[in-house]
Design a protein around this nucleic acid. Sequence first.
DNA 1: GCATAATATGAATATGTGTTCATTTTGAGA
DNA 2: TCTCAAAATGAACACATATTCATATTATGC
Lengths: 229, 229
Amino acid sequence: MDASPFINKPKTKKGRETLNRIVSAAAQVFYEKGYHSASINDITRLAGVASGTFYVYFDGKYNLYKFLLLQCSHMIRKHLYESTKNCKSRREIEEVGLREWLKFVDQNKYMYHVIWESLYIDKELFVEYYVNFAKNYIKGLDIAKKEGELNTEIDSEVLAFTLMGASNFLGLNYGLFKDGRYDHEMVVESFMKILNGGLFRVPEEKKEKETGELPIRLTVEFGDDEEED
Amino acid sequence: MDASPFINKPKTKKGRETLNRIVSAAAQVFYEKGYHSASINDITRLAGVASGTFYVYFDGKYNLYKFLLLQCSHMIRKHLYESTKNCKSRREIEEVGLREWLKFVDQNKYMYHVIWESLYIDKELFVEYYVNFAKNYIKGLDIAKKEGELNTEIDSEVLAFTLMGASNFLGLNYGLFKDGRYDHEMVVESFMKILNGGLFRVPEEKKEKETGELPIRLTVEFGDDEEED
DNA sequence: GCATAATATGAATATGTGTTCATTTTGAGA
DNA sequence: TCTCAAAATGAACACATATTCATATTATGC
């Protein structure tokens, strides 16, 4: 999809620079205050332009948001595509994908806010974003199934949302809550252990040990027993 | 935590009924329009009371939201606790937990909206909610580790956010996007296959097959070869 | 250096809505 | 029936802010 329906395209270098400043400022202000609490004045002030200038490039706040959401979508897809395109297996894609996603979130913390807030700005945008993202994810998973890399008994849609959810929440906790101050590699390693099937252990059956029958049972007679029942 | 700091407690049956109507209406309107677009008038109109009545029980819109968030938090924890308390293993907890969560989302679709929107109303509420939820989750995982049920090499925090993310996104897709019209049991089964380590298959090594050395190599001479290089 | 389109300005306007409060209604107990 | 605290009312107010527009400035091609 092209972004042009959402903006009035600048026609000179100066105009492009101004538009970029406005969009960058918007990302920052939306990140700090959220869409609704962010005023056009907040954005133009940070961008260093007059409030009227905003309306030279955007027909309104809502269009600015849609433009920004589209930018985010493009950036994420491009980053993930570029960093996984040389992977040799689905397993490697998942590993490299998570590592790069965590890195990406650290460097672009505002993206979460922009994307998730669509649910409260226009539900359709939100649904469209994730359904679309999942569709691509599923396509990749189905290819891996054909190659014999994945268990075909696992539904691809369930798997896609499971993996997307995991990445999203890990990025949330480590990138936003912990502000990127953590051991990325440890996270990736633990995550891959889960996917590689190392989650559950069969515990040594304690009940057998504690209350089960012993193989050999001896009863010693002391001869002076007095109480028994 | 007690909810009383956020409300002016009603003192009669009639007051309690009115407060319930307002909170229920708020959940519905927040679900439909989001916090910021939901006006007090929208809420009181749906509740069937005058706008001023709202301020008899709440000191403002923000307090209503905090009250509602706390209610959601309680309901979710209670539901999950009640439905998993008799589980015999961690594996069973995860299975029953997901099944019940999906059911719960179907019956209380507004919860997602209320909880996630906290990120745009008061970031601290959002962080507090999830950090707290994770803390409890981790506690349970650590117990399972002690029992020998889980791989101790997997970091509990990573695992907690992985599982929370998966449940959240599955609930999102099936409960909200698909509006609950799907086969719950299929989702749970696929999810458990992933957790049980059945995700990756070792593909028959195609490269060996296609380009590798054959065990026996025969070269047939036809005698009439003309081109070779 | 002139003409013209593109860009920039910011005060003024229009609109929506959170909140207040003086007043009225309700209902349980005496 | 009377009393009074609790509950309910809704018009009026205060405030924030998205947007407009007449005007000014800047840049580019001829």
